[in-house]
């Protein structure tokens, strides 16, 4: 890839004012030139931001419009929000689906954060050759597509009678190599002097983890929480396979059902989509800074 693009780069280079050309000019001229050079960047960012935000705006506005208005491309807020909510709750168990999704997502996130952070910390702090090898094996699980495990998992949960159970959705999502890796990488920046000092003070290994590691790694926990909650809240294929009764269905399943009939109520559909998106958007906006920090900390 790099080989192919370098010629393009140097060809473009000739057409752009380079710092060397501008060196002799006065400072004011140079800063003006560099400001002009930023224009394509701002244009590109504006286009990308508009393209990213427009479908979301469309979703929000359409949730307040009638199905007719949605198809007539009305892009202003309407007054049909309550009617959409009524038609949505009339045909579907909206509260039940929201509750199921919330319970599954929260339990998955809490359990995944505990199990994976403990393991990531363990792999880093107590590492031995054998544990490093185990980590390498676990990392290979990242390459296993869910499709390749779905049928046996389905049979396994059927055997123990966990159809329609939250646990059938939660259990496969708790321990993921990605989260373990994230925590192991950030545990690397955890100073060993603190560990030693705590051990001399007589703290147990578990106490060191709970009282010292967990509070200092808040950003990593935030990043892991955002990633896990979103994945659990948005999961579709597996819940659709294992949750069979209407009472057990989650929000993505409910939304998917809304287009099953011959006539789709687009206003109600967009309202359901909005309701399903609000929790993940709010969580992301709240934890955004910590999320970026956590990812960056793990990369360094």
């Amino acid at each position: 890839m790099a080989d192919m693009t370098v010629p393009t780069g140097s060809a473009l280079l000739d057409t752009l004012p380079s710092p060397a050309n501008g060196q002799r000019r006065r400072k004011r001229r140079r800063s003006a030139a560099s400001r002009w050079r930023q224009v394509p960047g701002y244009v590109f960012l504006s286009l990308a931001a508009a393209a990213s935000l427009f479908p979301l705006y469309f979703m929000v506005v359409s949730a307040t419009n009638t199905s007719r208005d949605v198809l007539d491309s009305r892009l202003l807020p309407g007054s049909n929000l309550l009617a959409n909510l009524e038609s949505l709750t009339a045909g579907q168990n909206l509260v039940g689906a929201l509750r199921n999704s919330a319970i599954i997502a929260v339990l998955t996130t809490v359990l995944a954060l505990i199990v994976c952070s403990v393991a990531g910390y363990g792999f880093e702090v107590f590492h031995t050759k054998a544990k490093d090898r185990l980590m390498a094996v676990l990392l290979m699980a990242m390459m296993i597509p869910f499709a390749a495990t779905m049928i046996p998992l389905f049979q396994m949960f059927a055997e123990v009678g966990l159809f329609n159970s939250w646990w059938a959705v939660i259990l496969p999502a708790i321990s993921t190599p990605f989260l373990i890796l994230l925590f192991r990488q950030s545990a690397r920046s955890f100073p060993h002097e603190i560990l030693d000092a705590a051990r001399i003070d007589g703290l147990s290994e578990l106490a060191i983890f709970v009282r010292i590691f967990m509070p200092t790694m808040r950003a990593t926990y935030a990043a892991a929480a955002v990633i896990t909650f979103m994945a659990a809240w948005n999961n579709f294929m597996w819940p659709k396979v294992i949750l069979l009764t209407p009472d057990a269905q989650t929000m993505p399943m409910l939304i998917s059902n809304l287009i099953a009939g011959y006539v789709t109520d687009y206003g109600a559909l967009m309202l359901a989509v909005l309701l399903a998106s609000l929790p993940t958007m709010v969580i992301f906006l709240l934890l955004q800074r910590a999320f970026a920090e956590g990812i960056t900390g793990a990369v360094k």
Partner: peptide, 23 residues
């Protein structure tokens, strides 16, 4: 810019599929 461009990731795959299906 960062928030705007990342925000689509907060929407579930099923949800955005429906938004695009409608559009």
């Amino acid at each position: 810019w960062r928030t705007a461009i990342f925000l689509p990731c907060a929407v579930s795959l099923v949800s955005y599929s429906m938004v695009f299906r409608t559009m």
